[in-house]
Design a protein around this nucleic acid. Sequence first.
DNA 1: ATGCCAAAAGACACCGGTGTCTTTTGGCAT
DNA 2: ATGCCAAAAGACACCGGTGTCTTTTGGCAT
Lengths: 371, 371
Amino acid sequence: MVKNILKAKAKRSMKTKSKLTGSSMRAKQITINDIAHLASVSKKTVSRVINEIPTVNVEIRDRVNEIIKKTGFRPNPQARGLAFRKSFLIAMIYDNPNATFIVGMQAGILEALRGSGFELLVHQCERRSPRFVPDVREFVERLQPHGVILLPPISENPVLIQMLHEVGCPHVSVAAARIESAMHRVVSSDRDACAEVALHLTELGHKRIAIIAGPQGHRSATERLRGFTDALQNRGLLMPPELIAQGLYTFESGIQAAEKLLSVYPPPTAIFATNDEMAAGVYQVAHRLGIEIPLQLSVIGYDDNPIASRLWPPLTTIRLPIPLMARLATTPLISSGNAHLQQDVALVTPNLVVRHSTAPPSSKRSRNIRA
Amino acid sequence: MVKNILKAKAKRSMKTKSKLTGSSMRAKQITINDIAHLASVSKKTVSRVINEIPTVNVEIRDRVNEIIKKTGFRPNPQARGLAFRKSFLIAMIYDNPNATFIVGMQAGILEALRGSGFELLVHQCERRSPRFVPDVREFVERLQPHGVILLPPISENPVLIQMLHEVGCPHVSVAAARIESAMHRVVSSDRDACAEVALHLTELGHKRIAIIAGPQGHRSATERLRGFTDALQNRGLLMPPELIAQGLYTFESGIQAAEKLLSVYPPPTAIFATNDEMAAGVYQVAHRLGIEIPLQLSVIGYDDNPIASRLWPPLTTIRLPIPLMARLATTPLISSGNAHLQQDVALVTPNLVVRHSTAPPSSKRSRNIRA
DNA sequence: ATGCCAAAAGACACCGGTGTCTTTTGGCAT
DNA sequence: ATGCCAAAAGACACCGGTGTCTTTTGGCAT
C-alpha cells in the first residue's frame, strides 16, 4: 500500500513531464506526507525527526531518516517559513560603488550563514533617489527578511534606520562610526587607522602633508579626516587648510584634488588619499607631472582595493578586516533566542599595509616639481 | 464589529510588545483575513484584488485597495509562494574572483528583476571543492529557486548543469561559449573580440606579438586564445610557441608570464594579456625592467576592470556589455507562461576600448630592453 | 490483574495565501 | 411574475509544514 502511493506519484510525475518539455520540467515535489506514509508514522513525527526533537524513538528516527535520504526529501522552505513565522532570509542592502567591498562582505556573510538554514538576499538601492527609503521599505515589507545588513554609507542614514525600527525589521549597521540609532552595529575604527597613517608619515620625516578627504556626509570621511588631523596635531603638526582637499571617493575626484594639492607652494611631500580610488587619481596626476612616487611624493590610500597592489609602485594603504566584519554583522541577526534583540556594538581595527609608495621626503623634490 | 476585530488585534500586539523588548519587536502581521473582515468581503475577493483579477466590482476593488493601503497590508511571501507553488526567488551562483564582474551582473539582474516580484539570492561556491556539485545541489533543493543564473567559469561545468537538469531547476549559463547542455545561455563572443584585438595590433604595425592565455579548462581562455591566433593567422602572422604564455587570470600569473615573455629574444613588441589582472602584471614587470608602455611595449587587457583605467598609461582593453548580459540572463527565467522552458541563446559582443597602452612598435626598443 | 505515570506518537487546528467549484446577484427576454 | 444566464462573490479544500493538546504505549508498584 505504501508502495502504491509512491508509484501513483511517480506516474503522475511522468504524465506531467511528457505533457511539457520533458526533462526540463520540475519533478513532483516529495512532501512530508509522503515520508509519513512511507514510514507509517504521522507527519508530526516526521516533523520531529526533521527538527531533531529528542522525544522520538531511535528506531523510528533512523527509519524516517533513511527514507528521507533515499527519497531525497527536502522540507518546502515556504511551508516551513509560513509555519515557523520566520523567513530564514537575511538581506544585504547596499548602495556602494566599491565592488571589492561588496563582494567581500557578501562572501563573509555567506560564510557566516553556512549551515544556519538562512540564505542571503541582496538588494541594491540608490540613496540619492527621492524614493530611496520608500523603496527599501517596500522591499523589507514584502520580503519580511529575518534581518538586514546595511553597508556604508546607507548604514548611516537615520531616516532609513528609523523606518526599519518602525516596520520592526532587525538590522545591523556596518559603518565607520557608532550609529546610535541602529539596532546592532559593526564599527571600524577608521579614526585610529588614520592616526596610524599620520604616525607612519611623520616618522618618515614628513612635515608638509596633504589629505584628500571623502565626501561630506559620509561618516567614514569625517572619521578619517578627524583621526588624521588630530594625530598630526598631537605630534605638533597643524594642517594648513590649503592642504586639505575635498574628494568624493572617486578616481576622478582624486585626480582633481591631486591637481589642486600639487599646485600649492610649497607642495606637500606626502598625500593621504582617504581611499584607494582617489590614491589612484594621485598616481595618475603624478605620472602626468613627472613626479616620482615615492621619491618625490609619498602616497597612502585606504581600503586595500586590488588596485592598491596593482599600481606602480604598490600602494601603502589601510586594510579593513572584511571577513571579520561580515561575521560580526551576521551573528546578531541569526543568533537564537532573544539574544538578537539586545543592541550590541562590535569594534574592529583596520590595519596599515606598508608597501612601496612611502619614503622619507627628499630635498630635491621641490626643484623637480616645478618642471 | 469589524472595528472590534482590529482593536482586539491591536491589543494582542501591544501585549506581545510589552512582554519583550518593545520597539524592536516585530509588529503583529496584518493578513488577508483582516482585510477581508474590514472590507466585509471574502478573503478570496481580496486575493482577486491583490492579483488584479478583472472580475471584481470596481467599487469593491477600490474599497479593498484603500483598506490595503491604509493598513499597509503586504501578502505574506511564504504563504503566497506556498499557494502558488512558486518561490519567487532567482539565485545567482558564482565562483569567481572578479568582484567587478559579480557586482555588475548582480546590479543588472536586480535591475531586470525590479517590479517582477522576484528577488535575488546569491550563492558563492568553490568549484575546486570535491563537494562542489553536492553543495550546490543541496542549495537548489533546499531553496527551490525559480531559476538560477550561473556565472563563468562554473557556468561551463557539465556535471553541475546535468545536476540542475536532474533536479529540474531552470538555469542559464553565462559564458564565453555556447554551453550545449545548458537550458539557456548568454554567450559573449570573446573570439570575435580577440580578433579585434589582433586587428588593432597588426594595424599598428606589430609583427611580434605575444599572448598570455587564461587557465586551461576555461572556455573563455580557449576562445580568447583561438580568436586571437586565428585572426593573426588570417593576416599571415604565425604565433611562435615561445610567445604564447600560460596564465591563470591572476595578477601573479601575469607577472610570471610577462617575465618569461620579455626574456625571449627578440622580445615581443606587444603583449595581449587575456584579462586585466594579468595585464596589470605585465605593467608591473615592465616598470621593474624600465620598459616604457606603450613606446617600447604595447599592452592590451580584457574585462575593463576598473584597474584598466587606473593604470598608467590607461590600459586598452575589451569591455563586456555586463548590464545587457545580466538582463538577457534574467529574462528567460522570469518570463511568464512556458516560454521559459524553450532553450535559447543570446549572443553578445564585447567591445574594444582603446586607451593609451598601445602604439606602433618602435625600432629602438630592442636596445632598451636589454638594459 | 489493576492503576499510575512518563515517554512517545498522533489528531487536529493553524500559518496565510490560491484554485476550483458553487451560490448569489441582477438584468433581460418571455 | 418567471426563467435564463453571465458576472460577481463566496465556500471549501488545499499548498506543506509546525504547535498544542490528547491519546496510546508500556514499565513498574501495588
